[in-house]
């Protein structure tokens, strides 16, 4: 099972990186989303894939009945997903605004901040 997940994580990373080197910012943002999901799945996999019950400790016992999966990575992923949700919502609004102001989604057109001797200022 782990090897399947490893391959999936690899594919997610590869696709994400490929999309990120494209010039379109829409694809870049999609690539970032895939990269984030790849990282989440990676954490899920290293937390050991166990088909088990929720890790609750029964009344009177000191540890949960095996087999249980390690709950911590899943809690980490939950947090990371929520953060990713917020960041991606922001990124979507940002690319929409960028498209409106720049009139293009090509990163090669976004060079005003890189030129020397040019007032790329905010005022």
């Amino acid at each position: 099972m782990e090897s399947v997940f490893a391959v999936v994580v690899g594919i997610l990373y590869a696709t994400g990186l490929y999309l990120m080197v494209r010039r379109s910012i829409v694809k870049t943002i999609f690539g970032l989303a895939l990269l984030g999901n790849g990282a989440n799945l990676l954490i899920f996999t290293v937390g050991r894939l166990t088909a088990g019950r929720p890790p609750y400790v029964p009344i009177g016992a000191l540890e949960p009945l095996p087999p249980v999966a390690d709950p911590l990575p899943q809690a980490l992923i939950l947090t990371a997903i929520v953060i990713g949700f917020g960041v991606q919502a922001f990124a979507l609004v940002l690319i929409k605004r960028v498209y409106q102001t720049v009139g293009s989604d090509d990163v090669d057109e976004m060079t005003t901040t890189d030129r020397i001797a040019d007032d790329g200022g905010s005022r």
Binding site: M20, I25, T28, I29, L32, L35, G36, V87, F90, A91, L94, I95, R97, V98, T101, V102, V107, M110, T111, T112, T113, G120, G121, S122
Partner: peptide, 17 residues
């Protein structure tokens, strides 16, 4: 503004990576 949008795209993408 335009410069801010372009700056923000670079900043956001690199930091998210």
């Amino acid at each position: 503004k335009r410069a801010q949008m372009e700056g923000a795209i670079k900043y956001v993408v690199l930091n998210l990576i």
